[in-house]
Structures are given as structure tokens and as C-alpha cells.
Design a protein around this nucleic acid. Structure first.
Lengths: 144, 144
DNA sequence: CTTTTTGCAAATGATTTGCATTAAC
DNA sequence: GTTAATGCAAATCATTTGCAAAAAG
């Protein structure tokens, strides 16, 4: 897993890419956010350090980071794409009302078993994640 | 659960809605499809029986059917919204390449336990579904 | 110098909204 | 007759694409 600028540089060089200031700064902020975010949110975060960055650059960079295993796209419910800077598969709580995504640390899923059943249907499974739909504490309070 | 036109009529009347030919025909096709579909696909399906139906009507009707528990929106990965005419929560295989959604009948998930953990975080869980990401048989064959 | 990456503007695709008309009740 | 639902056109939102200019190697 990539967790330093040096490792990012190595990964980029390995794929004959170029190490740009944008990529360095976006890396820093992705790591600092350490959670779930949309491209739009990341742009806002990065903007002060990189005046004039564009959304297409943020998207392109997130694609690169995804290829390299630095972030993963989270399975969500419509709306904007949510990225996660925790690259191991894990479970999520998704709020139906505001779309917020949170991690859930819970046992209770036999991942290997599930992947096995999936494979037996002819599907080529990569990962199994559990999604709990419901209402987050904030939205529940403001009577949803 | 609603599984006949009569029950749909009752549910619509209960909410002071109106029983239109569009709603009847769309119900028939949703039941006939008995699986996963997008609004666009459903429109194509329904069009021959209802010349001139509009996409907004299909969306509005799907919203109604969702409220009434006839269909559910499936947790997916970007792309078009996928609806499911199987209203009980169940697990899904989602193809990263073509977006296809299939059901997975697998044990291995302690739903109650997971909902409990979710509730303990202050979240108000409604349902827990497992999503297996990977490549479907068709896409795998055409070397993804 | 060569090739990738950037930023901009415009395109795309899915879903939603506004509104006048039609049709349920 | 009233009021909700429809169809159309236009709006919106997130993401992607095309392309010329800038910059990395």
C-alpha cells in the first residue's frame, strides 16, 4: 500500500507517468482526509494549495490513484461517486437521506464463503462488501 | 407485498392517488421482468403497450412503486440506477465492467448481528445487503 | 525535444423539474 | 368540477471528452 510521497513517485514512474505538483498535493489531501469523500469535496480541499486546479484533473488523479490501489470507489446509492482512502475492503453505512458514508467494523460476514458461492455461479468475484442502508444519526435527529 | 393489480389499486387509493392505465401497464411489466432493470429498459419494455409513455412517467411510477414496497433501488456502482422487483433484501453480484446486477443466494451473513453493530454506532439501519464486485461471466469471457 | 498532464469549454448521460394539458375521481 | 398524473421541453448534476497550451523527463 502506498502511504508516502516516495511510494507514489515510484508507482507513477513504474507506469511511465509524470510526477506533477497536482498529484503530490492531491495525495497529501487524500491522506489527510482519511475517509470518504467526493471529487467535488476533494477539489475544495485542494484548491487553496493549488489555485486553479480543475475538476477533470481531480477525476483523472483519482483514477490514477485507484489503479495504483491508493483509493477505492465505494459502492453507493445513486448520487455522486464516493471515494475511500482506506483501500482494504470493509463494510459501510450509507445514509439514505444525506448520502453520507461511514465505515462499519463488524464481524458477521463470512467473506470467503460468499466469494466462493459467487465464483460457483460463474462470476469472477473480486471483493465482497456489506452495505447497511438506513438513516445516519444526524438525519435521524432532524426527523427524517 | 403487492403482487396483483388489485393490491396496487388498494395501495394507490390508500394514498389518494389515481389508478391510471400507465400505472397498471408498468406494474404488469415490472412483475414480468422479475429481476433487475433500469428506467430506460423498463420504458422500452412498456412502450409497445403504451405508445408515447414518457421517461418522467416511468421514473415517477418507479418512485411510487418504491414507496409502496413493490420495487427497491439496488445499491450499485455509479452508472444508471438499477431497480429490483424482488422486494426482500438479498445479496447481489455487480459486474464492474458492464454494470450487470444478479442475485446471489448465499448464506454467510449474520444480518441481525450486523444490523445490531450498525445500530450501536448511532446509525438507524434499515437493511443490510452484501455486494460482491467482480466481473460477470460474459465480460470475463471477452477478456476484460 | 517528446509525450504526458493540465485547464478550459463543451459534450454526455441519467434523472428531475416546470408547466400546460389531460384524465381520474 | 377538482386535483393528480401525464408528456414535453428544458434544467440540473456528476462525470467525461476534445483540444491547445504548459510542463515533466
Amino acid at each position: 500500500m502506498i502511504d508516502s510521497a516516495d511510494q507514489l513517485v515510484a508507482a507513477i514512474r513504474a507506469r511511465k507517468g509524470r510526477v506533477t505538483p497536482q498529484r503530490r498535493v492531491i495525495l497529501r489531501h487524500v491522506q489527510r482526509l482519511h475517509g470518504h469523500f467526493t471529487a467535488e469535496r476533494l477539489l475544495a480541499e485542494v484548491e487553496p494549495d493549488l489555485p486553479g486546479v480543475s475538476l477533470p484533473t481531480v477525476y483523472a488523479t483519482l483514477d490514477l490513484f485507484e489503479d495504483v490501489g491508493l483509493v477505492r470507489r465505494v459502492v453507493g446509492l445513486g448520487g455522486a461517486e464516493v471515494y475511500d482512502s482506506r483501500p482494504e475492503p470493509h463494510h459501510h453505512l450509507v445514509c439514505r437521506s444525506c448520502g453520507a458514508v461511514a465505515d462499519l467494523n463488524a464481524a458477521g460476514v463470512d467473506t470467503e464463503g460468499v466469494l466462493g458461492s459467487a465464483a460457483r455461479t460463474g462470476f469472477h468475484p473480486e471483493e465482497a462488501t456489506l452495505v447497511v442502508l438506513g438513516t445516519c444519526a444526524v438525519c435521524a435527529r432532524s426527523q427524517d
